[in-house]
Computed example of a mutant assay.
Amino acid sequence: MLSPVIAGVDGSAESLAAAEWAAREALRRDRPLRLVHVWDWHPRGHDGEPANAAQRQLARHATRQAEERIRSVVPDVLLTDEQVEGPATAALLKAAEQADLLVLGSRGLTGFTGLLVGSVAQGVVAKATRPVVLVRAGEEAEDEHFPADDGSPSTRTGCLDVVLGIDLADACDEVIEFAFEEAQLRRARLRVVYAWQPPSAISLGPGDIALVNDPQRAEEWQGFLHAVLAVWRDKYPDTEVLETVVEGKASTALVRAASVASLLVVGRRLSERPTVSRIGPVTHAAVHHVGCPLAVVAHA
């Protein structure tokens, strides 16, 4: 059986947008979609049973609301749902292990509240071994596409670029392949962005500073990027690739590129210590500032 695309739902506008995005993605991938709601179990006692009953009722409402929205806009997707007991981070990480892709709202009313200040969703992103996509509230199918000739939103036009943020010092096959696959699924162009910064006098040895000037450094990085992507161009010959090398901070370059993208893809190195939750400064900036869906792909 094919592993599903899984969407976490909690009744919030963000999770509803995430569920709809996940449904479109599941259809593109020819995968089933599973909706998961996490509720907190309370031990038996004075308030335990009423609290549990209320949680189950909220879970049914959240999943039913998401199902109704999905069936109205993506009726052909194969859809199931389940309610599972928390803690939320552990439950979602367990769900992610079974998923082709896990999709979460970037903020929410319950389990995903406060992503920007360190929440369950950020904990999932920091620890999941499978790709995780974060979706903002208000994300619509039209947002993935170029506007129509008259400037109006449309789903009949081509998809906006998929943007890949790449670190040429640590170029990872899993991240690159994910981005190429997403571009191919959308028949979109893949824009690969690498940002470099001139070395400081401290970081270079004696006599190194004058060896290469900035234009030459940019040209060398451009050639290196082209070489890294060569094998992937051969593997995905129908995908148009635009290579962008810019001087400056990676986070700034990616936020700018993602302003007109259907999806931003970044990598996250798996920690050798499972108890450590870190997403890195570039991914952290993308979580805070990027408006389009953000895919975080873990790699060794």
Rank of each mutant, 00 (worst) to 15 (best):
Q216S: 15
P4Q: 05
R34V: 12
L101A: 02
W21P: 10
T155Y: 04
F180E: 09
L16Q: 11
S262C: 14
E14S: 14
A13C: 05
D47S: 05
A59W: 01
L211N: 11
T239D: 04
V5E: 03
A258Y: 04
I279F: 05
G138F: 08
L16C: 12
D10K: 06
W21D: 06
W232Y: 15
P199R: 13
D214G: 11
I209D: 15
R56P: 01
L254F: 06
A218T: 13
E49T: 04
S200L: 09
L115W: 01
V9P: 05
R278C: 09
V212T: 13
G105A: 01
R217L: 14
L79I: 06
D208W: 13
H61S: 13
D238R: 12
V255R: 15
R217W: 13
Q197G: 12
A201C: 10
L109A: 05
E142L: 01
A13G: 08
E85F: 10
E82A: 10
F178E: 13
A62V: 03
Q197C: 14
G48T: 02
D208M: 15
R268L: 00
Y194V: 08
A141N: 03
G267E: 08
Q184N: 15
L116H: 09
G291P: 01
G118E: 07
V103T: 07
E82K: 06
L211W: 09
V5F: 06
R256I: 10
G111R: 01
A257V: 05
I6Y: 02
D161I: 07
I70P: 01
E247I: 01
E240G: 12
A66Q: 00
G165F: 08
V296S: 02
A148F: 00
V74F: 00
H226G: 15
P32T: 08
A230T: 11
L185I: 08
W39V: 11
R156W: 12
L27A: 15
P50V: 06
W39Q: 08
R136H: 15
T89G: 11
I166K: 05
A183I: 08
F224T: 15
A141E: 13
V228Y: 00
Q55G: 13
V246C: 05
E68H: 08
K94I: 06
P4S: 02
G105P: 03
P199Q: 11
A227E: 15
L294E: 03
R136L: 00
A286G: 00
R233M: 07
G45Q: 07
L164H: 04
S277K: 08
A210I: 08
A257Y: 02
D100N: 00
T63G: 00
V255P: 00
E177Y: 04
K127P: 00
I202D: 15
T63Q: 00
L102R: 04
D170A: 14
S277T: 05
V266Y: 03
E219T: 11
T155P: 04
E49C: 00
A195E: 07
A258M: 03
R233F: 04
I209Q: 15
E139N: 10
V255F: 03
R24L: 11
E97C: 09
L229T: 02
R44I: 09
V245N: 02
A171G: 08
Q197K: 14
V260T: 12
S152E: 14
P153H: 08
L270G: 11
I209T: 14
H284R: 09
G118P: 06
V266P: 07
E67V: 06
V245G: 03
